[in-house]
Amino acid sequence: MSIQHFRVALIPFFAAFCLPVFAHPETLVKVKDAEDQLGARVGYIELDLNSGKILESFRPEERFPMMSTFKVLLCGAVLSRVDAGQEQLGRRIHYSQNDLVEYSPVTEKHLTDGMTVRELCSAAITMSDNTAANLLLTTIGGPKELTAFLHNMGDHVTRLDRWEPELNEAIPNDERDTTMPAAMATTLRKLLTGELLTLASRQQLIDWMEADKVAGPLLRSALPAGWFIADKSGAGERGSRGIIAALGPDGKPSRIVVIYTTGSQATMDERNRQIAEIGASLIKHW
């Protein structure tokens, strides 16, 4: 067993022997301040990774656009098919120029040779490549099948209805392509620590998230040296922004954090800054 596999296998073990965790309302004060600064709703939840206990939450059962955070769930569904012998990570998928959609920095470079399922998941999570996500959605049967996968996990809230990039439209009061912070946090925890996926697939999923290259201005910008984070960000229309993450000190994750916002007129930089400040408060009061 590799060191990384050992780390993920012992996530519940280490967490069980940690000192009790206590909620700190100071972080919620910052979440509410972010709402004021952005002029928009902000949803927040913080779960203990081992027990699933909610440590703090704000608007945990209000719907927010998922945006690209759905790509972690998508690759979880792909990995479940791999575990069941219905898919192979090494299978190569070929596609054409007509398949390319807006923001496809990886797939646009491989029109000639195609990409493997493993490479597509890596591109979808680490670079948020939209064509990679659409190609992977095709392998599982489309958005409705991802929703069905989530329902089978016990998540009857999260739903995907459309493809990239239309799913980022974020129309107010439109339930399409949305989740709730509580539902997303619980589902992410199941994917990373539950028995739904094999140990190898859980490790692969967290490795992809740990290698995320496009979430630097968010929670990662607030992390002290030595902290662990595996995350996936999302951005959408109407001032929408979000991030889902597993993080913790001492090089291992111990909490799940989900943050979503929508309806702001603020710039992307300002949305990023507010999420980073929430992260800084979380870490300060850990």
Rank of each mutant, 00 (worst) to 15 (best):
D129N: 00
E119D: 13
P105C: 04
I93R: 03
A123Y: 04
A235Q: 04
G216E: 07
E145H: 09
E166C: 11
L188F: 14
I243T: 04
D174E: 08
L223N: 03
D161T: 06
L160N: 07
N130D: 05
N134K: 04
E108S: 12
I256M: 07
N272K: 02
A182P: 06
S2G: 08
L10A: 14
R241F: 02
K53V: 13
N98V: 11
R41P: 10
A222D: 09
A182V: 15
R7Q: 14
S96H: 11
L205C: 03
A280V: 13
I93W: 03
L199S: 10
V31H: 01
A40Y: 03
F22A: 10
G52Y: 05
S68H: 00
A124H: 00
L247C: 07
K30T: 12
R271C: 09
M66S: 04
Y103Q: 04
G251Q: 13
D161G: 03
G242T: 02
S221Q: 12
G85S: 10
H24Q: 11
G242D: 00
L136Y: 00
A245C: 10
Y44F: 11
T112I: 15
I244Y: 02
A211L: 13
G52P: 04
P143C: 06
R220H: 04
D207E: 14
V72Q: 02
L19Y: 15
F58A: 09
G234C: 06
E237T: 11
H5G: 06
M153Y: 08
T131P: 03
E35R: 03
V72L: 05
W227Q: 00
L137H: 03
D129G: 00
R91F: 05
F22C: 13
T178Q: 03
M153W: 15
P224K: 07
R271D: 06
G142R: 03
D155Y: 01
P20Y: 03
T107K: 01
E87I: 11
L137T: 07
G239C: 03
G216R: 08
D161A: 06
L197Q: 05
L111T: 12
R176Y: 07
S221Y: 10
D207P: 02
A133P: 02
L150W: 06
L160Q: 07
E108F: 08
S128Y: 00
P224M: 04
E237H: 12
R273I: 10
L136Q: 01
V257S: 03
F14W: 07
L49Y: 12
T147N: 11
Q204K: 10
P172W: 09
T261I: 12
F64M: 07
S104Y: 03
N98L: 14
T107E: 01
L167M: 12
H151Y: 14
Q97T: 13
A15W: 15
T126V: 10
S51C: 05
V117E: 02
E195K: 10
V8K: 15
A225V: 13
L192K: 01
A182C: 13
D161H: 07
P60R: 12
A77V: 11
G43N: 00
H156I: 12
L191I: 11
V82R: 07
Q265I: 12
Y260F: 15
Q37E: 14
